[in-house]
Structures are given as C-alpha cells and as structure tokens.
C-alpha cells in the first residue's frame, strides 16, 4: 500500500501544512510518497525528502505548475494515481481547491477535513462547523482525503528520501494566474492568525484595549479579537468580534483577556488548540475551557506578560 501526499509549497520550501499531512498519512500506514508539482522547486523537493517517514519524493517541474493552479495539478495527480491506495492533501485553501478535482476525475468520493484515522478506510471528520463528528467509511478503491492540519502533529525531520523526477503533463490552458497579493499588514487577519489576542469588557475601555493588547499582539505576531460585549461597548469595531455571531476561529493559541466566556463566545473559539485565559473572576466560565488560566488583574498581568516575551 502506498500513499501519495500532495505537497503544499512555494517552490523554495514546504509549507507547514504538508508536515501535518505527512503525519496523517503515517497514521494510515504505508509507503509515503510526496508529490511536489512546481517550477524551480528543488528547494521544496529537498525539504520534503528530509521529512521522517517519507519514502520517496516525486518532483514534477514545468512552467504550468509554477502557480499550482488546480486544473493542471489535478491532472498530474490523476495521471500518477495508479498504485496509490490513498491520496492526501492538507485541508488548506490549496488542498481544498485541488483534491475534489482529483477525486472526481478518479470517480471516487473525497473525505474532507479528517481529524482522525480509525482504519485505512475509516476516518473522523467534523460536520456542522465542528458541532458534530462523523465517522465515515469509504467503499472506494482510492481514498481521496484532505487533512485538518491542526489535528495532526507536524512530521519531524530526519528522513532522506530519494527525489525522483516525474514527467509533466500537458498544459491544459484553462486558467492562468494574474497575481497574488499576500496580506502584508503586520497584524495577521483574525480568520487566518496562528495566535489571537482577544479582549473583553474587563478591559474597561477602548483606550485600555489598544494600550494593553496591541503591544502584546505585536510581540506575539498575533491578530486582535474581541468578545461581543467589548464590541457592544464600543471598544473596537464589529469585525473584531469572535463568537457565534462574529468570526469562528481556531488558532494555535487563543489568549482571552478580560473575557468572561459567554457560550456565544466559546462557540467561536473552542476549537483553538491552546486557550489561555486571564481574568480576575475565578468563576468566569472561560476557565472551564482554558488550558492555562491565570486569575489576576489584567491591568498588571498583561504588561508583565508583554515584558516577559521580550
């Protein structure tokens, strides 16, 4: 049994999401091959070859793979699919774009966004925005899968796989890249941030919110969020709001400052990997979900935390 992992990369290097996907492949079990489709992608290939557990790296280099648009990449994957029992990609905007195309061309179902591997044909995936977990079994010969990256550890380095060149397919000429505009703002966007510093009504005012949380967020490279109470109180605009009626986020770290943790707020951030709460009320519901809770006056604790991170 061999498993093909479609790498997400920028030609020079492998994106972190690929590392989690390799770990998911290892959980299924079998020889793991990583496909790097790109142009001038030796750097990415070499990085993939160093991952522990990777048996082989397949490198397909051609100008029409440079932008890694779905049409050509999917065709390449399908052409090289024979022999693989599973094809995996990260459930990122890249993997979600490519993989269903692959599945349809292979006439197999896709299993989206898996968070656990129960057996080689059985997986757990969230449905209804994570409010229910479905265990699904695939009857197809090839399992096309996207992997929720936060559910699997990153694969470590330590491998030395061979890099094998793959013949490129023809350019389908269906689509072309006009441009990419990566967000350059120092502050990552709430929906995409790895770390979020979020403030609640405990901050008392908009001035306090900015004075206390911005330096901390700067230190952490974090996005800024807020509870509905803070938005309602006018500390920050609507688009800062995390929660049922705001944005649903799942960062690596969610730092809740002066947020009591109303259920509407929890509904928007409970899938965060690590939740940290700073609140002076030891009874605040936020502590029921926090991995690390600090009962303290935030006006002292937050500056101290900011300083400690220097």
């Amino acid at each position: 049994m061999a498993i093909l992992v479609i790498a997400e990369h920028d030609n020079q290097s492998i994106k972190a999401a690929t590392l989690n996907t390799v770990t998911a492949a290892a959980a299924i079990g079998g020889d793991i091959h990583v496909l790097v489709a790109g142009q001038g992608c030796e750097g990415a290939c070499n990085a993939a070859a160093k991952l522990a557990g990777v048996a082989k790296v397949l490198c397909a280099a051609a100008p029409h793979y440079e932008a890694q648009l779905a049409e050509n990449v999917a065709a390449l994957v399908v052409a090289n699919a024979p022999g693989y029992s599973h094809i995996l990609a990260p459930a990122t905007s890249y993997g979600k774009n490519v993989m269903p195309r692959v599945a349809a061309l292979l006439d197999v179902a896709q299993i989206s966004d898996i968070v656990a591997v129960e057996a080689a044909d059985t997986f757990v995936r969230p449905i209804y925005a994570g409010n229910a977990m479905a265990t699904v079994k695939s009857a197809d010969a090839v399992k096309a899968i996207t992997v929720r990256t936060t559910a699997f550890e990153a694969a470590a380095e330590g491998g030395s796989a061979a890099v094998e060149n793959l013949a490129a397919g023809a350019d389908l000429g269906l689509s072309k890249l006009v441009g990419r505009e990566l967000t350059k703002s120092e502050r990552p966007e709430l929906g995409a941030a790895k770390i979020i510093v979020s403030g609640g009504r405990g901050l008392g005012s908009g001035e306090n919110y900015h004075a206390l949380l911005e330096p901390l967020a700067d230190k952490l490279g974090a996005a800024l969020g807020a509870s509905r109470a803070a938005v309602d109180a006018g500390f920050v605009p609507n688009d800062y709001q995390v929660g049922q009626t705001g944005k649903i986020v799942a960062p690596q770290v969610y730092l809740a400052v002066g947020i009591s943790g109303a259920i509407q707020h929890l509904a928007g951030m409970k899938d965060s990997k690590v939740i940290v709460a700073i609140n002076k009320d030891p009874e605040a519901p936020i502590f029921q979900v926090a991995d690390y809770g600090l009962v303290a006056d935030l006006f002292a604790a937050v500056p101290e935390l900011t300083a400690a991170l220097s």
Binding site: V108, A109, I111, T122, P126, I127, G130, N131, A132, M133, A134, T135, V136, K137, S138, A139, D140, V253, K270, V274, I275, V276, F287, Q288, V289, A290, D291, Y292, G293, L294, V295, A296, A301, E304, L305, A308, L309
Partner: peptide
C-alpha cells in the same frame, strides 16, 4: 452514496486545564 456514515458523535468537550500562579509560570508553560 460512496461513503457510509458509521457514527455521529458530539465533539469532545473541552475540559478545564490548569491554573497558573503567575505570568512567569504562564510563559514557561506556553
């Protein structure tokens, strides 16, 4: 259908973690 749903369950409830004593311990844990 190609996929059979074997089971649908509620997501695991997040449980409370630990209380840290101070900022220094919090930074250490993180």
């Amino acid at each position: 259908p190609r996929l059979a749903t074997l089971k649908v369950a509620e997501p695991p409830k997040r449980s409370a973690g630990v209380r840290v004593a101070d900022v220094a311990q919090l930074v250490d844990k993180l």
